[in-house]
Design a protein around this nucleic acid. Structure first.
Length: 287
DNA sequence: ATGCAGTCCTGTAAGC
DNA sequence: TGCTTACAGGACTGCA
């Protein structure tokens, strides 16, 4: 499931492979993605030169000199790769852009079709992310913004971290990893954190995400980088997917529950709920 | 306000 | 062995 580190890895791979190159003719599958592909987009892209490739949250932004951007969201199973045109087209490939007169391809593949590919004018890029209410990047979160936002909601930390309008780019895996790292129970209510705990969570996000980027992202099933290689960070998980395994800090078995509609992994030993203030939730979690 | 269920989707794996 | 069913979840909608 591509989250921020996976998307960042792809963007870094695609940048040298795509910037300065010209998009040729495009082929599209008949199957629909999350949003319909408009017929007029094709002529905005054809012949355009790639100016830059950036990431915002889980979005890939391919800016073209025709003053439009190709925006790609990978959803759950999306893959965006540059490859030789001679490589067989894998099933579930939805977009193929010719590069270099057809010798290479940029291909978008998405088995589950939760992904999205859309074209917008460059000048409405900011408006697009405003409309989707995409929150700030997690790397240099403003402390007062963070304190205010967390202080204003009673939702669980897990739900808050998954909310893209609070902070952009975090999904199920890195929410669990960050909460483990910060030693915070995922069911804790955001507004009941102490100032120190809020600070811990804020500072842990860049740490966890940068480590994952260094590991070139995590492959659970479908994720591959911009060159088609699997990630390496899935071996470094300390909570996610480690149900029943001993915690690396306190050796108690990692527990898995369902929270905010997602499978949630945490250590009942060192990600504590405080019994006095969270008796009800403690009981619910059998602690 | 908030959580929860349902929706989209399909490959994989478990269960009978 | 072969079928059915549950599950994974990013983003969104509708409901209680």
């Amino acid at each position: 499931m591509p989250e921020l580190p996976e998307v960042e890895t792809i963007v870094r791979d695609l940048r040298p492979a795509l910037v300065g190159r010209r998009l040729g003719p495009m082929r599209k599958s008949t199957r629909s993605l999350r949003s319909p592909w408009k017929r007029s987009w094709r002529r905005h892209l054809r012949g355009a030169c790639v100016r830059s490739i950036e990431r915002r949250g889980k979005w890939i932004i391919i800016s073209l000199d025709s003053e439009v951007c190709l925006l790609v969201h990978l959803g759950m199973t999306g893959q965006l790769r540059v490859m030789p045109a001679s490589e067989p087209v894998a099933p579930h490939t939805h977009l193929i852009f010719h590069l270099d007169g057809g010798r290479a391809h940029l291909r978008f593949r998405d088995v589950r079709r939760f992904g999205q590919a859309t074209v917008i004018e460059t000048r409405s890029l900011a408006a697009f992310f405003d409309r989707t209410r995409l929150g700030p990047e997690p790397f240099k979160l403003d402390a007062s913004y963070w304190d205010q936002t967390l202080g204003a909601t009673r939702r669980s930390l897990k739900a808050v971290l998954l909310d893209q309008s609070v902070v952009a780019g975090i999904g199920n895996i890195y929410a669990d990893e960050a909460l483990f790292e910060a030693r915070l129970h995922p069911a804790r209510s955001a507004c009941r954190l102490t100032a120190a705990e809020r600070g811990r969570l804020r500072q842990v996000l860049p740490k966890v995400l940068n480590r994952a980027i260094e590991g070139r992202g995590s492959t659970i099933r479908d994720y591959v980088d911009g060159a088609g290689q699997v990630g390496g960070y899935q071996n470094e998980f300390r909570a996610y997917g480690r149900t029943g395994e001993p915690c690396q800090r306190c050796a108690r078995p990692i527990r898995r529950v369902r929270l905010a509609g997602r499978s949630t992994h945490y250590c009942p030993g060192c990600q504590n709920l405080r019994p006095a203030t969270h008796a009800r939730v403690n009981a619910e979690f059998g602690e």
